[in-house]
Design a protein around this nucleic acid. Sequence first.
DNA 1: GGGCGCATGTAATGAGTTACATGATTGA
DNA 2: TCAATCATGTAACTCATTACATGCGCCC
Lengths: 168, 168
Amino acid sequence: MERELLLLGLLRHNHMHGYELHEFINRDLASCTDLKKPTAYYLLDKMAAKGWITQTEEQEGSRPPRRVYQLTAEGEAAFQRLLRENLVAYHQARFAGDIGLAFVDALEPEEARTLLQRRRDTLAGELAATRHIPLHHGTLQLVIEHQIRHLKAELEWLDEVLGRLSVD
Amino acid sequence: MERELLLLGLLRHNHMHGYELHEFINRDLASCTDLKKPTAYYLLDKMAAKGWITQTEEQEGSRPPRRVYQLTAEGEAAFQRLLRENLVAYHQARFAGDIGLAFVDALEPEEARTLLQRRRDTLAGELAATRHIPLHHGTLQLVIEHQIRHLKAELEWLDEVLGRLSVD
DNA sequence: GGGCGCATGTAATGAGTTACATGATTGA
DNA sequence: TCAATCATGTAACTCATTACATGCGCCC
């Protein structure tokens, strides 16, 4: 699974704890993935059980203790394997919004335009927000760049659809 | 859920049975969604239980009997509601392939290029195949058009990434 | 005679989510 | 003092998948 790859990749250079990983992913990588807290803890436990990562209890002042993870040799091997698997394969994207578009002719063009205009506004907001994400180091930045390209293309596509709905 | 919307939308104009729906979706809409057979039957049962659709047993010769579904008034209402819900919202796309890209600098550029070239080949094949899907009627065709646009954009993006990997 | 297509399902499993629970610290 | 942040988790549930099971008809 690519979520495990993501966690391993992040833990490779920075030893982090669950809360920190969840926070990083949902703040800086939200445009690409989302990982809920229980899922993060669940995956970390699972990978620890597989021997891919080890945990060290850490305490800072009187804060809640936290479990900081780092890769083992097997973890690094798993990372290498998952990375190559991920890179060779083309992963098809599914666009949930297309199912609505497929049946948009069931509505009056005017209502359809109003609804899609709202979708467009959200999309434009998403694009603006993604443009303001601070730069990541190394190829992590590719994820953001890809998302920005995609959002721009989606905006153009939606505008074309809106245009067609006005003409028809 | 958008899968229910999809099934309702298809059943609105053509009364179909489970096998037929599954076949249509996985042949003509594969670029957009996929729906496994058990999932199709499961959803149809669920929607029948909710009173959204009714089934009529049909027999053609000595073929296995089949359950042909059609929308009820509540089904039509559900369709209208789900359609509007789907159209207003922007549904974020997640690109599983980006997680590999995020860590591609863990590999030698040469190996990375080789792996991504294979991804590119699959992608190009997907684009060619999608271009040969026969036209759908009405706005169903939008789904295919969107996918073609997306695949073209992805190809350009991958080529840029490959170019950068050669330079660095 | 063997395999594929038609047509339906069940059972087990997995992945991920929501909602809930805990408890200390920090800041307004 | 009240809310938010830090930090971890459990339990129940949903959605969808895989693997398995059945049985007839058609074509080579």
